[in-house]
Amino acid sequence: MARKPTLPAVLLGLIPFVGVCFTVAFWDRVHPFVLGLPFNFFWLILWTLLTPLCLWGAYHFEKRADSRHSAGSHSGAR
């Protein structure tokens, strides 16, 4: 099996799904304007900045799991 992603990484990866998808009914509105942008527009732009942060966090968990994984298997062809 390919190594499954770690649980903390998956949880971090789910955050953007909640932010930009499932919660649409809460943020799909024009007012209040933020930085001159309608609220829904501002919200989605904000998440293009927050998503890399979530993934960056997930990266650390995955990286650690990677080194455990390759140390655990045979002598390491890489």
Binding site: G13, V20, L44, I45, W47, T48, T51
Partner: peptide
């Protein structure tokens, strides 16, 4: 479009 692109990278 703005929403799905971020999720695509996830």
């Amino acid at each position: 479009i703005l929403a799905y692109i971020s999720l695509a990278y996830v």
